[in-house]
Structure formats: C-alpha cells, structure tokens
C-alpha cells in the first residue's frame, strides 16, 4: 500500500475515534444541562407528576448510558431519532427531516462563500507577499484586519444598510424555502455570503502572505533569484508549492467556521440555516436535534482537518515520494 494512502486511512480511523469521543461528550454535556424538554414545554406551572409523565413518554426516565447507546446505535444506522417537539401527538417528525433542508441551506451558503473567499484570499495573500511592505500590502492588511476585528453582526447591518436599503441591490432578508430557484437562492444569500467573506478572508490571506514570506529567506529562493527567475515566478513556482501545508490548515479551519459558526449572520438575515435551528433546539431542550447538529459540526471539523492533512501530505515530496 502506498504510504500516503496508509497515512490517510490512519487519519480517517483517528477521525472516527475522535467523532466517537465527541459524541460521548455531546451527550454527557447535554445531560448536565439544567432543566429538560418537559420543563421547557410545560412552563413554570408544571407539576412534578406531569413532568414525570412527559419524561416517561419520551423515554427520558431511563438511565443515560442506555439512552446513549440506543442513540449512537441508531445514528450508525443513519437514524437520528425523532424530534421531541410533536412527539406526543400523532405526527412524529424525524430529526433528519427537520435538519436536511437547514443543512442544505447552510452548505449552500458555505460553499457559495468559499468559492468566492478562498481564491480572493489566496490572490490577495500572494499579491501582498509579492509587493510586501508596499502601499498595497499595507492597505490589504489594514482592510482585512478591520473586517476581522469588527463584529460580524455590525458588518451585516452595514451591508444591509448600504446594499439593501440605500442601493436596493439585494434583499435585506434572506428567506429561502424549498421552492426557491438556484439563482434566486444565490441572490438572496448574497449579503450573508459577503458578510462571511469579509470575516474569513483576513485569516487566510495573512497566512498565505506569512507562509510565502517565511520561505523567501530560504537558500532555494535565493538560488531561484540567482538563476534569473523573476519575483513573480519565484513566488508562484518556487515558494507556493512549499507553502500549501500551513495555508490549507487555515483554509480548512475557516471553511469549518462557515458551517458551524455562522449563527449570528443567519439570525441577522433571517437565513434558515442549521445554526439557528441548533440554538432554537437548545433553548427548547429538543435534545435529539441538538445532538444531531453537534455531531454534524464535529464531523465537519474532522473531515475538513483531514483534508488539510491530506493536502499537507500530497504537497510534500518527502512524504509523497519516499526515498
């Protein structure tokens, strides 16, 4: 087996192990939350008897370990269980059915943002490294630092004010539903996407710049120069291939953020993503939904970091082509 494939499989195995540990932690920490679904739904006037009856109906009176294994066993079969909300009535709604459209929206926004933000960050980073300490470099640094330092809801409101209210280019609310067409979806998600772009570009751009500049002092970069390679070619052909590992790590980190950290932006633009769903489910103690969301977030982090690891390996000839 090629050593790279072996490493990837090893990392994948480790990722699964991590996911298992995370699932235990999610379950345990939710168990420790004060109050339960019954108290949340029945309100302050609930008698202990009704709460107990409610819990019995949901199966919450059984031991936690039993419920954990039941849950994780079902998850392994692709069954995330049923939402507590409406569990008592005739229409039981599966967690998958609740999450699926929200997850689609979240991934839609994340991918749309990534397609725009990652190339932009790389381009700015390379240009800044190429013209380091120039006016351009300083301007890009200052601008990206400003956008990362500004709270994202504030950026969101600023964009909304200029582009939705003043210029009326985009809608201020990003409500989408299952019937929304692709183009319409893109149009409606434009402002949240721009907001997120402004938030994540700084980190990626600065890492690209730093990773490249870090390599400029290496003897092979001096050699490239003394071979008559131009500054631009030196950075793109000689420095960049050696700089992918740290850049990929930062990109993975920011892409993960696009999936798991965007609740504020979702709320501001009333975009029906998974972040909002999770926050709502936590406040109503709708545990099956919360657990599913948390597990999806963890898997996203693990998969993206795994991809970054793979990029680091395949861009390193020492690992890709062993002696």
């Amino acid at each position: 087996m090629h050593p790279v494939l072996k490493t990837v499989l090893q990392r994948l195995g480790l990722g699964l192990l991590t996911l298992f540990v995370v699932s235990v932690m999610i379950f345990a920490s939710l168990e420790m939350l004060p109050g339960g679904f019954a108290e949340a739904i029945l309100g302050q006037g609930a008698t202990p008897e009704t709460v107990a009856a409610f819990n019995h109906q949901l199966g919450l009176d059984r031991p936690a370990a039993l419920r954990y294994f039941e849950w994780i066993g079902n998850v392994l079969h692709g069954d995330f269980g049923y939402s507590y909300a409406g569990a008592g009535g005739s229409i039981k709604k599966s967690v998958s059915a609740i999450i699926a459209p929200r997850l689609y929206n979240t991934f839609f926004l994340a991918i749309m943002t990534a397609i725009f933000a990652v190339p932009l960050a790389l381009f700015l980073g390379i240009m800044a490294a190429l013209h380091r300490n120039s006016l351009f470099d300083r301007a890009v640094n200052a601008a990206t630092l400003t956008t990362i330092a500004t709270p994202e809801f504030f950026i969101a409101y600023l964009l909304m004010f200029f582009f939705a209210i003043q210029l009326k280019w985009f809608p201020s609310l990003s409500t989408v539903s299952e019937g929304t067409s692709l183009l319409e979806h893109i149009y409606r998600a434009a402002l949240p996407s721009i907001t997120l772009t402004l938030v994540i570009v700084a980190h990626m751009m600065r890492m690209t710049r730093a990773a490249l500049i870090n390599l400029l002092a290496s003897p092979y970069m001096e050699m490239a120069r003394l071979k008559g390679v131009s500054q631009r070619d030196a950075i793109i052909h000689h420095a960049l291939p050696n700089a992918w590992a740290p850049i990929a790590t930062v990109i993975a980190f920011n892409l993960a953020y696009l999936v798991v950290g965007v609740v504020v932006v979702e709320v501001v633009f009333v975009y029906p993503g998974i972040g909002q769903l999770m926050v709502d489910s936590v406040s109503s103690r709708n545990m099956p939904v919360v657990q599913a969301c948390a597990l999806i977030f963890a898997a996203t982090y693990i998969l993206l970091n795994l991809s970054a690891d793979i990029v680091s390996i395949v861009t390193n000839p020492r690992l890709l082509h062993p002696k």
Partner: peptide
C-alpha cells in the same frame, strides 16, 4: 536577471538547501 543563470551562474554551499524540495 537576463544574465543570471544564462551567462553567470551560481553554485551554492548547501545543495540540499538550495534545491527546491518541491520540484
């Protein structure tokens, strides 16, 4: 730059460090 590499070339002390590891 047009002269470098073409008419004047340089051989560095540490070849291991002066070759680009990626190519």
């Amino acid at each position: 730059r047009k002269l470098w590499g073409a008419r004047i070339a340089y051989v560095a002390q540490s070849a291991a460090a002066s070759f680009n590891p990626a190519h």
